[in-house]
Computed example of a mutant assay.
Amino acid sequence: MLRTLWQDFLGLIYPRLCLACREPLVTGENHLCTGCRAELPYTDYHRLPPDQNPLGRRFWGKLPVRHALSYLRFIRHGRVQHLLHELKYQGQRDVGTALGQLYGTELHAAGLAADFDLIVPVPLHPRKLAKRGYNQAAAFATGLAEGMNVPAAAHTLRRTTNTKTQTKKNRAQRWENVATVFEVEDPAAVIGRRVLVVDDVLTTGATLEACGAALLAAGAAEVSIATIACA
């Protein structure tokens, strides 16, 4: 009782805010307000057969992907862009963890958690990691792991080169930028395992393709991908 009163008092002084719209959360709401939860542009790709999944088609002929999953559609100047900006540039790693928990719970309910043995985030170069303080993909992986009850391993992949930003590159340039910059630190950790590779946003898929190729070359049984959002 006293704890609840103290939490309510703190809420008056330091209200918990929705991660998407920054409005105060009410009792019973966590991370996202009810309005944003209802209006976020969900993809529901996990409900589609693989041959009808438009995200999976991006990897046809490039990487054998079992599942291609993305929680939200990226819409410029919308809630999703705001969430990703908070995650990547405003130090709000809880955004990634919270969205991972929500999505992981959905994937578990859909029966997909049984298809993964390990969740591996796309790594940042140590220099960029030191500057940002955390890996946004690893935050998402942590949430997914909690929601699906599947282990995550943040250091399975290593980025060997500090590549330039991918933002203004076309697909060919993006692939050239990342094709040889990932390696598996401990192949024994992935041999024979079904790996879910995760990142914050999927645009052309070049980064995830490079990570998936490195994992398969190291002996992973199969690779799937999942992101917070897709453009």
Rank of each mutant, 00 (worst) to 15 (best):
L112P: 11
H46T: 00
L216I: 06
L48E: 07
L83Q: 08
H125V: 05
A138F: 12
A229F: 09
V190F: 14
A217P: 12
A213S: 03
K164D: 06
D199S: 06
C33E: 03
V181Q: 10
D200A: 05
A138Y: 04
G111N: 12
L2E: 11
A109I: 01
A188V: 00
A138C: 11
G100N: 02
T27E: 12
P54E: 02
N149P: 07
L72E: 06
A229L: 11
L48D: 03
M1Y: 13
G11V: 02
D8C: 08
G212V: 04
K168N: 09
W6S: 13
A141Y: 10
H125A: 11
R3T: 13
A20V: 05
L84K: 05
F59T: 00
A179V: 01
A189G: 03
R16K: 13
L5V: 15
G212D: 04
P121R: 05
P121G: 04
A113S: 05
I119Q: 03
A221N: 13
W175C: 00
C230E: 13
L10Q: 09
A206R: 08
G192N: 10
A213T: 15
V150Y: 09
G143M: 05
G96C: 06
T105G: 10
L84V: 14
G61P: 14
L55Y: 03
V198S: 11
T180M: 01
L25S: 05
R22F: 04
A218S: 15
L202D: 06
T156G: 09
A188C: 00
L32S: 02
E222Q: 14
T180R: 07
A139V: 01
V95S: 04
D200R: 05
E106S: 13
V184I: 04
E185R: 02
A179T: 02
P15E: 13
T207I: 03
I228S: 04
K128R: 13
N53C: 09
C21N: 04
D186F: 15
E23W: 10
T163Y: 08
E222P: 13
F59I: 00
P64R: 09
R66Q: 10
N170T: 06
K88N: 12
L69C: 15
A109R: 08
Q90E: 14
A38M: 15
C230V: 15
L124W: 08
I13Q: 12
E183C: 14
H108F: 14
